[in-house]
Every structure is written in C-alpha cells, then in structure tokens.
Design a protein around this nucleic acid. Structure first.
Lengths: 158, 158
DNA sequence: TTGAAATAGGACCATTTTGGTTCTGTTTCA
DNA sequence: TGAAACAGAACCAAAATGGTCCTATTTCAA
C-alpha cells in the first residue's frame, strides 16, 4: 500500500502536536495523554526522534523533549528518514551495487532514481508547520480523493 | 523504509521490459527468462496486472500478455495502485471515518492529505516510457546518492 | 543524601505482511 | 485430444511491525 509504518505515523502526529507550541518542553507522559497515544509507544518514538536530532532532550526530573528547530525547518522527509531509514523505494538503491543479480540486465536499473527522487522531492516540500496548521481551511476536501471510486482493492486483504 | 514491495518492484521491471516492444505478446515463461526472474512469481504478478487491466491477456496455447495501452499511458502510480492497493500512506485515509479513535482530537487529521497528494502526484508524473528508456543518459549519476551524501535533487518535478 | 521523575537503550514476543511456491482448473490452438 | 498458457486460490516459511517491558542513567529538589 505504499504506506509509512505506524511508528512514523505516530512520529508525525507527535511532532505536529509539538509544533503547535514550539518552545514548550514536553514530557513523554504529557504527550501521550495529549495525543491519546499509549505511553510506551510514544516513549519509543520520541527516543528515536531525539537520537536523530529532530528533538532535543533533557534527562532527569523536569526533563522532557522539545523541537530542536523551528517547525518550518523540519521536513516530513526528515521524519520519515529518521523513523524508517533512507527514502528509497527499492532495495537496489540503498544496498549499493553488487547485491542485485539483475545488475547489467535489469531493464530498469538506474531509472528507479526517477521514482525515488520524485518521492523524496515531494516529501522535502512538506514541513511541520504545514502539518500542524489546525485544519487550515477545508480546501483539501476530505472525502473526495477516491480515484474514480474504483472498487476497494484492499477488500480482499481483510 | 517507505518502500514498495518486491512484487511491485517486479511488476515495474516486467512492464518496463514489455514497454520496450509494446506490441509484442509475451508469455510468462518468456518474460521470466528475459528478466531472469522466477517463473512462478512472474506469473503471479502478471495475473494481478492483467486483472486490473494494465495488461491484456490471451489464454490458451499461443496465449500471453501484452500491454493494454501505450507505455506513455501507463503511470507508475497505476502499477503501484494495482499491486499494493490505494496510494495512501496512512490508514486513516482509506478506511474512511469512524475507525480512528483519534478522530476529532488528532492534531494532523486532514493534513495527511497533503502528504498523500504529494506522493500521488509525484507518481502520476512518471510513466512507463520513462522507466523503459534504456538508461537514457547517465545524468542521474548512479553511485552518488547513498545516505551519507544527501545531494539535494531539487528542481526536477513540479 | 536520597527519592522521584524523566530519558536511554535494549530485549522480547505476538501478530501481521511478504515472498514465493504449488496445485487445480479453464481456455485455446494445432 | 493433448500440450501450452492463463486464472485463481491455497499454503507456508521468513521477515517486518507493533507494542510492551525491563534495567540503567541522569537530574531536580526536598
């Protein structure tokens, strides 16, 4: 389904929430409550985000997490890269040469770059401030994106 | 890793190969050999592609698969949608309302649309003819994108 | 000095996805 | 009528995910 993992989902939710008050120091328990997500999971994600420098952390009592930079400076691509690794849609990319037995004969070969770059670029353009705006205007009609209303092709998977 | 599944990978490889001779009728065994992929898997993917109308199929002896339309008319997004379901990076999209217990309080809510649309658009812009060009020119420097050296590849799409 | 409150970092395991194979039809041509 | 292909589904091992939990370590403040 070309989807991000739930962890990343949580990450974006958490960071978006933090972006609404960019200077505040948030504890994990606070965040868990405010976003209504389970604490252990929130905790785990925050650690990852902090390890990669998207969050600053203060240990000890009165500790917590805060955004390491302005929301505008944190791109969705940063978050995904932190929580899921390099944004490359196929393995032949991040494994380097020599792994794929198709090498040389693969009809696609370098052309994966086209796709990867397109995705990366798209994700680079979106930053936290955009995600955090409290439903800016209903421009983005919520129920209106179903491609031709073609039958739910995921109907069989559950 | 925000990656497509191997099945989709195969699908793109297969279709790209077929795009190099758009009018030819390919049998699954032929394709397996020409792309050096295992036949059972090739077979499986072809069936899916054909079920969704990306390929035409002819049964019986002398049967096979052929592109259902010109390579330029087959977008990467079509292939992904066929092999992985709707292109929506989070579940709150394709499941419709009422599923997410965050509803109403989720700080991101409709803003996922921003991301989903960006991805969809990016993938809409790439068609099979682009993927199939036999390494058009080495513009897209192959060995230069590894995680460490993150070169900004702006200025292409959009 | 000490205890409570936080983060840091793993280990762990059930569940789900995936990758790939195989089997049993059905269709078509020669 | 048989061989060659596609159609469709079942199946299962391996990998990835989602969550939780446990044990440090750090810091503040009484």
């Amino acid at each position: 389904m070309l989807r991000i993992t739930k962890q990343t989902d949580y990450g974006i939710v958490l960071l978006s929430h933090m972006a609404t008050d960019p200077d505040r120091l948030f504890t994990a328990p606070d965040l868990a409550e405010e976003t209504r997500l389970p604490l252990p999971t929130v905790s785990k994600v925050l650690k990852l985000l902090s390890r990669d420098g998207l969050l600053d952390s203060q240990r000890g009592a009165k500790g917590g997490y805060s955004l390491s930079r302005r929301p505008e400076k944190i791109r969705v691509s940063d978050i995904i890269r932190c929580l899921e690794g390099p944004i490359a849609m196929t393995e032949c990319i991040d494994d380097g040469p020599g792994v794929c037995d198709q090498e040389g004969s693969c009809p696609v070969e370098g052309n994966w770059q086209i796709i990867n770059d397109a995705i990366r670029t798209a994700l680079d353009r979106i930053d936290l401030s955009q995600m955090a705006t409290p439903l800016p205007s209903r421009l983005v009609q919520l129920g209106d994106h179903r491609p031709g209303a073609n039958e739910r092709s995921d109907a069989n998977t559950r």
